[in-house]
Design a protein around this nucleic acid. Structure first.
Lengths: 205, 205
DNA sequence: CCGCCTACTGTACTGAAGTACAACCCGGAT
DNA sequence: ATCCGGGTTGTACTTCAGTACAGTAGGCGG
C-alpha cells in the first residue's frame, strides 16, 4: 500500500483513517504538495459542501495521483458530480477502516470505487429506494428462537436452503427443520410468504 | 487470490489467462457449477454477441459471485449494458495478464472495473439522475410484456402458479412459461428473489 | 434424575417450481 | 407471402422445498 495523503480543512487526520493507514499524512487544501509522492489522495468534503467544486483545484495540483472523496454527508448526486470531475472514488468519511483499505486497494489498482447502486441508477435511469430494512425484531419474531430468527432473515433476503446452510455452517437438513418450524409458528405456506411477513409487506392471503 | 472460473464456449482457457491465474479452471456455459466455490467468474463474450444477453442466465447460476465480462470485441455500449445487467467488470479478452490480475484485485475487493473513459461518457450522456424511486411501474417492469407484469405482481404477492392460473383463467403450464421468461429477463434465480425486486427490496448483489 | 427445550442430523417421500424442447394461433411489420 | 413476437399449451424431466418419522446431544429447572 503506497503513501496516503489526506486533505482536510485543518490538515488533521481522523482516528479511523490512522487505523487504516498508520503512515498516512495530513495536509491543508492550500499546502504545497511533494511532487515526488505517488500514493492516493483523499479529500475530505465537509457537510454542506459540493464535492465537485473542491475536486477540480486539487486535481490540478496532484496530477495523476488518484483522488478519493471522503464525504461527511454522502449523496448520490454529489458522488456523480465528483466522479465526473475526475475523482476515482467516493465514500463515506466515517466508513470503517476495513472499507477504507478496500477502497484504497481498488483505486490503487486502477479501479473506480463506485457503489453498485449508484451505477445501476446511472445505467437504468431509474432508481430504487434505500433498502427497506428487514424489520429486525418485528412482531413476526416474537415466537421464534434465536436460531430461527437468523434463518428467517436469510430466507427473507432470498437465500436458498443450501446457501443458508453454508452461511451458518450446518447441514441443509437442519435448515429445512428450522424453516419448517418457522412456517408452522407463523402459519404461512411457504418461504415466499415468510419473506413478505419478515419484510413487512402484509398481503392478503 | 481466490479461485478463478472462466466460462467460454468450449470450456477452454487461453494462455494469457493461465498466465495470470495458474490455477484457473474453465467451464462451458451449460456446465454444472460447484456450489462451494466462491471466487470470481469470468465470462467470454465472442465477437458479435451482446454481453448483456449472456450475463443474466449466468448470474442466476453463480449467485453472489462477482462476474467479469471478457469481450473479444469490446464496445462501450456493450459494456454499459453488461454492467447494467449485473456484471462487476468488463474488459478486453486479450488484455495482458497484469491487467487481468488488477481487474481481479479490484473486483475481489468489491469494486467495479469501469474504464475512466467509459465513466466519463456515462456522466456526460446521462447527466441527470433518474428521479427518486418509484412504487409503481418500477424499473423491473420495463422489459416485461403486459402479461408478464400481471404474473410478476401475482408472484410477488405470494401466489402459487396454480392460484395465478385460476386467477387469469389459463393453465398452470402457461404460468410457468411466463414465470420462466420473467426470471430470465430480470436475471434472478427464483420467484422469491423476483418478489424482492418487485417489492422494491433488492438485497443481494 | 428426569422431563423439556433447543439445536442438530439422517432417510425417505410428496409436490411444487423451474427447464428443455416443441408446437399452434394471431396480428403487425417487412 | 413471410417473418416475428406475444400468448398459449403440451410432455417430460430435474431440482428444490417442505413434511413425516426418527434419533442424538447439551442445558436447565423441578
Amino acid at each position: 500500500m503506497g503513501e496516503q495523503l489526506f486533505i482536510t480543512g485543518d490538515g488533521g487526520l481522523r482516528d479511523l483513517w490512522r487505523e487504516a493507514f498508520p503512515s498516512a499524512r495530513g495536509a491543508r487544501p492550500a499546502d504545497k504538495l511533494d511532487e515526488r509522492e505517488t500514493g492516493l489522495v483523499w479529500l475530505l468534503v465537509p457537510p454542506g459542501k459540493a464535492a465537485a467544486r473542491l475536486v477540480a483545484p486539487i486535481r490540478r495540483r496532484i496530477g495523476s495521483r488518484p483522488l478519493i472523496i471522503l464525504a461527511d454527508e454522502p449523496g448520490e448526486e454529489d458522488a456523480l458530480a465528483a466522479l465526473g470531475a475526475g475523482a476515482s472514488g467516493y465514500c463515506n468519511a466515517h466508513a470503517a477502516s476495513e472499507v477504507l483499505l478496500q477502497v484504497a486497494t481498488v483505486v490503487e489498482n486502477g479501479g473506480l470505487w463506485v457503489g453498485q447502486r449508484l451505477l445501476q441508477r446511472l445505467l437504468a435511469g431509474t432508481a430504487r429506494l434505500a433498502p427497506p430494512p428487514v424489520a429486525e425484531g418485528g412482531a413476526w419474531s416474537v415466537s421464534l428462537t434465536e436460531r430461527e430468527r437468523e434463518v428467517a432473515i436469510a430466507v427473507a433476503q432470498g437465500a436458498s436452503n443450501k446457501e443458508i446452510a453454508r452461511q451458518l455452517d450446518i447441514t441443509e437438513r437442519t435448515i429445512k427443520a428450522h424453516v419448517g418450524a418457522i412456517l408452522e409458528k407463523l402459519g404461512v405456506r411457504d418461504r415466499l410468504q415468510l419473506s413478505l411477513i419478515v419484510n413487512g409487506i402484509e398481503v392478503g392471503r
